[in-house]
Design a protein around this nucleic acid. Structure first.
Lengths: 388, 388
DNA sequence: AAAAGTATCGGTAACGTTTGCGGAGACGTT
DNA sequence: AACGTCTCCGCAAACGTTACCGATACTTTT
């Protein structure tokens, strides 16, 4: 009945237990264990039959040539006769052939994909950076995979892991407000994957960086307030874990010192600037017994929050309170008397980082610690223009 | 001198041409062709040496087990002893192992990646949709790859090709204003890759769709204008290739007809609504001899453009001109007297499409032609509130 | 006619995973 | 002794491409 699959003997086959719910046998002659597989390939094969995407092999078979010939023909390599090439191309079109980027990337160890991790999508800053980067990358035949860390250090880590798993060719990253450990980033250096920080950068790690001239921008903004007659200027800054926050604070201090204005510590607030936080901080500032007569905020949404609160409290802008923001959001031009703000070259930031990462991808060696500084522009509107 | 690599003979080796700049020989004894490869593996090998990412095989070797054991241990499969599993996990951590998603996807024919193609990033609509979708997808362990067609049909096609090449598990797409051929989309159906259209959908192709109640929203908006005493209402609509435009036009007509207002063809404009176009159309409308007393625009940026032009011309809003937009951009709350507009549930759209595509990815069969309609909300602000 | 050159194609080993199936030992039970 | 059950692990075939190295059939030169 049962026949040994090795020696073909029928006698001397003994049962030898079960394995995975199948009867197992042992042939005494050749001492070979085997299970009797009663193929039930009736329905099974139909169900398991995966949808087949046409591959290079399909083309090769239907043309009676080898896969290497097809591969070369599709890529316009040498060593292919014009007729063969054309036949392959025709057949590929006929079969709706789409190359499998996964297999390509696996063998070439190159994905033609650049990753980008941004902390948030709420402000228009990052979407605009994305537009700029996307433009350059698609032009160069690269894809852009975007992830969003949602201002969470943990999410940022899992994002970087996913990027590594997907074997991206390079990463553009803007850090979270929470991020104060950089081990997940040093992994990229260890693997030789180029990495560029932009906007939210940190100095603790040696990678190329793209930033704006936060110090000068901040200095100019505060100087502008001072020249418009404001005296007691408060600063609503971001968390000092971020270098941008540090730079903008430095600019604020420098301007205040240059013009001999007193710097009062309780007029400087640094923290995570969510909508609610901005409201709390604003409340605090506007209810101080000796109220500031101007506020320089680290982003526009906070500045706008301040303006709305001032409006509620009947504090007139710009007469009783000057406000300057940062980034030039779309709504900043339209609110109240117009919000004076520092315009960032968002598209340019995107393009610069993208062009740079493309260079690094092909580069032999990476010059670490280089920093490219782009220029901002102070947009003066009604919120800071006092006739003074 | 030259020795046959096959039979080892030294005599009877004849030169037999060049192949790829290498001398080629023929052994007369064994009739074997071969090239003499003068290995210059001195520098060559060093340069070509690719950076090695640690693989499962590395772990297996250093532990003296097989790759299958490592694979199973890493994935918590059965048939692995606790000690072995722990040893594998420790070694993986020690070697900074990152799984290669490409190889995984290749063998599993599954990338755990959802693609999304949007026409633009300028308005806040799509970034918000992305936020919603991203949230759901990351929660489910999926990645989101975003591409941007830039309102170009050609770019849309190349984007879909790239998505196919990357073997995404599903696609979320919002069409271009130009798109009027859908062959590139039917490829997905042909390959069994789920596809969902959202916002910019078309009826010519049978796929699941997520939209908002454009007809009702439009009807309500125009009705609101009429109830506020406006009589001659113009419509600044999008291109009629888009179904949203058609629906909003229908809503406009229905409201006008219900209240017996005359519909004048020259007061209905349909076209691509770039910033410049909006200005041109606005110019036209505001300079008609018999000027409309209200304008219902298909998006907020056009509506705002109208408001700014009216302001320039000294036309007061809302007294002489009522304006209603669509989408509730961030700036709409702040401009002038506030722009009345139709708020779209952007986050909800993103979440809905994402949840749906995840279902379809695992589904056996896809119910085509299903459409999910989400609700909008009319946000009434100063631009349409006439004391009338 | 040998030698050299040209043009075109095929075979096959990678790339890093997953997984079905089988091997083998240990131990218990008739 | 014969059989049953369990645990743990290895082999090898996929997945779709690319690229190196040959191989064959010619033509041209010496």
């Amino acid at each position: 009945m049962i026949q040994c699959v090795k020696c073909g003997q029928v006698d001397g086959i003994m049962k030898a237990g079960y394995v995975r719910a199948k009867q197992r046998y042992l042939c005494k002659w050749c001492n070979y264990y085997f299970t009797h597989s009663e193929k039930d390939d009736s329905i099974q094969s139909l169900v398991k039959r995966k949808r087949h995407q046409t591959t290079i092999i399909d083309i090769a078979k239907s043309l009676g040539v080898s896969n290497s010939t097809v591969s070369r023909a599709l890529h316009g390599h040498a060593d292919i006769s014009p007729e063969t090439r054309q036949a392959v191309l025709d057949k590929a079109a006929q079969l709706d052939y789409q190359p499998n980027q996964l297999a390509y990337s696996l063998v070439k160890s190159k994905t033609n994909t650049i990753g980008m991790i941004v902390p948030e999508f709420q402000n228009q800053f990052f979407p605009n950076v994305i537009i700029g980067a996307h433009e350059v990358l698609t032009e160069a035949g690269y894809n852009l995979t975007i992830m969003q860390s949602n201002e969470s250090y943990q999410v940022e880590i899992s994002n970087t892991k996913a990027m590594l798993a997907n074997r991206i060719d390079g990463l553009l990253i803007s850090l979270t407000q929470e991020t104060n450990n950089f081990d997940h980033l040093s992994l990229f250096a260890k693997r030789g994957i180029p990495l560029i920080q932009f906007n939210r950068v940190c100095d603790q790690i040696d990678v190329p960086k793209v930033v704006v001239n936060d110090f000068e921008a901040s200095f100019q903004a505060v100087e502008h307030l001072i020249l418009n007659g404001y005296e007691r200027i408060a600063h609503l800054g971001g968390p000092l874990t971020l270098q941008v926050s540090q730079e903008r604070l430095r600019g604020y201090r420098a301007a205040m010192e240059k013009y001999g204005k007193p710097i009062e510590d309780h007029m400087i607030i640094q923290g995570m600037l969510t909508q609610q936080k901005a409201r709390i901080y604003g409340q605090y500032l506007l209810e101080l017994t000796h109220r500031p007569d101007a506020i320089f905020a680290v982003n526009d949404s906070s500045a706008i929050e301040i303006m709305l609160m001032a409006q509620e409290k009947g504090i007139s802008i710009p007469d009783e309170l000057g406000v300057v923001g940062f980034s030039d959001n779309a709504e900043s031009a339209y609110i109240g008397p117009g919000l004076t703000t520092v315009r960032q070259p968002t598209l340019h930031i995107g393009r610069t980082t993208a062009e740079w990462i493309l260079q690094l991808v092909d580069a032999e060696e990476i010059l670490l610690n280089e920093k490219r500084v782009l220029s901002t522009e102070l947009i003066i509107r009604g919120s800071s223009r006092r006739c003074g």
